[in-house]
Amino acid sequence: MDQSDLEYDGHAGRIVGRRWAGDRADYIALLVHGYGEHCGRYDHVARRLVADGAVVYAIDHVGHGRSAGERALVDDFEQVEEDVHQLEALARSEHPSLPIVLIGHSMGGMIGARYAQRWGDGLACVVLTGPVIGTWEALDRLLALDEIPDAPIDPAVLSRDTAVGEAYAADPLVWHGPFKRQTLEALRDCLRTIRAAGVVDDPILWLHGEADELVPIAGSRRGWSDLAGRHASAKSYPDARHEILNETNREVVLDDILDFIHTHLPAPPP
Results as ranks from 00 to 15, higher is better:
residue 186 A to H: 05
residue 170 A to D: 12
residue 133 I to G: 01
residue 168 Y to F: 15
residue 152 P to W: 08
residue 144 A to M: 03
residue 136 W to E: 10
residue 138 A to V: 11
residue 125 C to S: 08
residue 152 P to K: 04
residue 175 W to I: 09
residue 192 R to G: 15
residue 125 C to H: 05
residue 177 G to E: 07
residue 186 A to F: 01
residue 169 A to H: 00
residue 191 L to G: 05
residue 167 A to N: 12
residue 163 A to Y: 02
residue 161 D to W: 02
residue 122 G to P: 04
residue 162 T to P: 12
residue 167 A to R: 14
residue 177 G to D: 07
residue 147 E to W: 04
residue 166 E to F: 07
residue 143 L to A: 01
residue 133 I to D: 01
residue 164 V to W: 05
residue 152 P to T: 11
residue 123 L to N: 03
residue 140 D to A: 10
residue 120 G to H: 03
residue 144 A to L: 04
residue 170 A to Q: 09
residue 133 I to L: 05
residue 134 G to T: 10
residue 151 A to H: 03
residue 166 E to A: 15
residue 116 A to L: 07
residue 142 L to A: 14
residue 142 L to Q: 11
residue 191 L to K: 02
residue 177 G to Y: 04
residue 127 V to P: 03
residue 128 L to Y: 04
residue 187 L to D: 03
residue 182 Q to T: 14
residue 119 W to D: 12
residue 122 G to Y: 02
residue 137 E to H: 13
residue 137 E to Q: 15
residue 175 W to Y: 15
residue 133 I to W: 02
residue 146 D to W: 08
residue 155 P to H: 04
residue 184 L to C: 10
residue 148 I to L: 06
residue 130 G to R: 05
residue 156 A to Y: 00
residue 152 P to A: 11
residue 132 V to Q: 04
residue 121 D to E: 15
residue 172 P to F: 09
residue 146 D to P: 11
residue 139 L to V: 01
residue 151 A to T: 14
residue 192 R to S: 15
residue 135 T to R: 14
residue 128 L to A: 00
residue 118 R to Q: 06
residue 122 G to N: 11
residue 152 P to H: 08
residue 156 A to S: 12
residue 151 A to D: 14
residue 152 P to L: 11
residue 152 P to E: 11
residue 121 D to W: 00
residue 188 R to G: 06
residue 148 I to C: 07
residue 176 H to D: 11
residue 166 E to H: 08
residue 145 L to N: 01
residue 164 V to Y: 00
residue 151 A to Q: 11
residue 137 E to G: 13
residue 183 T to S: 09
residue 156 A to E: 13
residue 187 L to C: 10
residue 176 H to M: 11
residue 180 K to Q: 15
residue 152 P to N: 09
residue 188 R to K: 13
residue 129 T to K: 05
residue 176 H to C: 11
residue 189 D to R: 04
residue 165 G to P: 07
residue 116 A to M: 08
residue 119 W to A: 13
residue 138 A to C: 05
residue 146 D to H: 09
residue 188 R to E: 14
residue 152 P to R: 06
residue 122 G to R: 12
